Simulated assay, not measured.
Amino acid sequence: MGHEVVIIAPGPRDEIEERGPRSRIIWLKSTVFPLDFNYRYFSDVPALYETLDRENPDFVEASSPWRSASIIADWPGKAPRALIMHADPLSAYAYRWLDPVATRDTIDGLFNRYWEHLRRLDNSYDMIVSASAGLSARLVAGGLKHVVTNPMGVDPGVFSPSLRDPALRKGLLEMCELPETATLLLGVGRFAPEKRWPMLVDAVAAAGNHHQVGLVLIGQGRDRKAIERSIGGNPHVRVLAPITNRGELARVMASGDALLHGCEAETFCMVAAEACASGLPLIAPDEGGAADQARANGGWTYKSGDPAAAADAIAEYCLGRETGLAGPRADIPAPRTMDDHFRELFGTYERLIAPKSRRAA
């Protein structure tokens, strides 16, 4: 879109990685995060500030609500800045752990320090960008005043109902030891605790007492063994290796009957958007980004974290499909794309830059 984009990221060494005529990554030597060796954090703040000063950006975007957001808030540069809420730690951890024993008001009170942190950031940033209406509403209710909702979107030209492959669908159902008349559910994403895959496996098994339904899980992650334990000897649930080819994933997505999702902590839920773009209905928890998309696209929702409610929603969808009242659609409207997201985002940035440019002049 004609903009110069520079990413400053913590890495194992100081290095500049060119990504094109107007884009590059500046890696700053940084310390490994002690709780997860896959991550690093900006441990040399003067080096980060020096890099920002040298780049002299028109706009600065922080993409994590943690320490780096506070560092960028304190940077003395004059460029306007935005915080992108790519994480919802309260939903991913606090609510998931404590919802069974405490009210949301009580939990928020226990984690008031985090809310105070977000409110301090809100005072320092020109905008807090949220990708779902549900998250935006919670942030506003928590006292933030600069929240802007800007949903993300799918890769243009990749996902489509036209890619539906009856032979592929038949093969996946055969893998689940089920006939073509059965319902094929897909679960796609990281195998992590907050995704609640074991709960969904149990829900599919319960719905399977009254309907022929199979579940194919596609992904990878540290929770794989827990998922396999929950599957046990159930022949109607299968785990596939992650599909790294986007075209192949699009073909699989279009060949299912619905996407089954279990995580209530999604800030947007890219896989739900890709499923909708593929013509699939959504069966999702009633909170988070997946819920927003399910409601917007006529999907099914169930009480978050409740396996019995998930089983009921699956059974309701299966019954609707068996009676011809539900199922994949070939006539869905064109989905929102990432190009749409960035046009809107950069347009907002340009409007924030203009007043500061006039004051500087």
Rank of each mutant, 00 (worst) to 15 (best):
R169F: 09
L260H: 00
H211E: 08
D88R: 07
W66G: 09
L319G: 07
A309I: 06
G279D: 15
T106N: 11
G187T: 00
N245H: 13
S23M: 04
A326M: 02
L172N: 05
Y302T: 10
D306P: 05
A250K: 02
D223G: 05
I314V: 11
G2V: 03
P100E: 06
V213S: 04
R343Y: 14
D126W: 10
M127I: 12
E344R: 00
V147H: 13
W27Y: 07
T244C: 15
P307K: 09
L144G: 03
G2H: 06
T103S: 15
G305S: 02
I107T: 11
P285A: 05
P193G: 11
P89N: 07
D165T: 12
V140Q: 03
R359L: 13
C269Q: 09
D99G: 07
E50S: 14
V148R: 13
L260K: 04
S91V: 01
V188D: 03
F59L: 10
A94W: 03
S130F: 07
V204M: 05
E4G: 08
D155P: 12
L200C: 02
G208V: 09
I71S: 06
G247W: 05
V148K: 13
P10T: 03
P80M: 11
T267Q: 07
R104C: 12
F346V: 11
G187F: 06
A203R: 07
V213K: 04
E228N: 06
E174L: 04
E4S: 10
A277G: 01
L319R: 13
V5P: 12
R164D: 14
R138V: 08
L186P: 13
A167F: 06
G288S: 09
A131S: 14
Y93W: 02
C176R: 00
L135G: 00
N245Y: 08
D257I: 05
G77R: 02
A326W: 00
E180Q: 09
E174S: 11
V101N: 15
S70Q: 12
S63F: 14
M338V: 08
E55Y: 00
A310Q: 13
F191D: 10
G233P: 05
P333N: 08
P10N: 04
R54A: 04
A311E: 02
I71Y: 09
K78H: 13
L217T: 10
R19P: 00
Y302M: 10
A354E: 14
E248Y: 08
A9Q: 03
E174W: 04
G262R: 01
T301M: 14
W97K: 15
W197R: 15
R96I: 02
D99H: 11
P333Q: 08
D108M: 12
R295M: 12
I107N: 15
P151V: 02
A206Q: 01
V204E: 07
G262W: 01
K195R: 09
D286H: 04
E4Y: 06
A277W: 07
S357D: 12
S230K: 15
V216W: 05
S255E: 03
P21F: 10
G233T: 11
V5R: 14
D292I: 09
G299S: 09
G208R: 14
L186R: 12
W27T: 04
L35R: 15
G347D: 03
C263R: 11
P80H: 10
G347S: 02
I107F: 14
Y349K: 06
G11L: 02
G324P: 05
A226R: 05
V237T: 15
L139D: 02
Y317L: 03
R104N: 12
L139C: 03
N150C: 14
C318R: 09
P80F: 12
S43C: 15
